[in-house]
């Protein structure tokens, strides 16, 4: 996987962030175009390619979610775009509450605040679930674990979007 290669790392889902940063800075010092301003155009171009790859790799790998998404894609798994079925009922009720608050019905606020808390908790659960699954897959490359990571990422993304919508609505109306 080229992003791992760029940083001289084995493709693992769990990463030591301090080590990642150190590798990024060391390689930046070595390859940044600033170091090649008086070099030949081939060397300049190579420096630019190396550095842009390094920057893209660091940006992707430093966040667990983007790292896992990259890992899945490279492993040939596409992320799902469907709503997680277990959340359907919840989302239905949430949308009603959002509509009510938009329409000026303040009684919906309590329900949304509760939803906000619940979603924040779900995100934290997803994150700790991910780190458990990362360790598990790194220990033994089991395709079932990879599927579980995919499902967790999908659920996490969906919850994160819901949370964003709820917070946006709560903020808009508290500002008025």
């Amino acid at each position: 996987m080229k992003f791992y290669d760029a940083l001289g790392l084995e493709p693992k889902l769990a990463i030591d962030l301090d080590d990642l940063k150190k590798r990024f800075y060391d390689r930046s010092r070595q390859w940044h175009p600033d170091r090649f301003s008086r070099s030949s155009s081939e060397e300049k171009q190579r420096s630019e390619e190396m550095t842009s790859m390094l920057n893209d790799a660091f940006r992707t790998l430093r966040e667990p979610v983007t790292r896992a998404e990259y890992f899945l894609r490279e492993s040939g798994l596409e992320l799902s775009k469907d709503a997680p079925p277990e959340l359907l009922e919840e989302v239905f009720e949430l949308n009603m509450a959002l509509e009510e608050l938009r329409g000026g019905d303040e009684s919906a606020r309590g329900q949304l605040v509760l939803a906000q808390e619940r979603f924040t908790g779900m995100l934290a659960d997803a994150d700790s679930g991910l780190s458990r699954l990362f360790a598990s897959y790194d220990g033994k490359a089991d395709a079932i674990v990879l599927e579980q990571i995919r499902a967790t990422l999908n659920r996490r993304k969906y919850v994160s979007n819901l949370l964003r919508d709820v917070e946006k609505e709560l903020n808009v109306h508290s500002a008025n």
């Binding site: 175009p33 630019e48 550095t51 842009s52 790859m53 920057n55 893209d56 660091f58 940006r59």
Partner: peptide
């Protein structure tokens, strides 16, 4: 806010 050089 992506570090440059950056590519896609």
């Amino acid at each position: 806010n992506s570090t440059i050089p950056a590519s896609e």
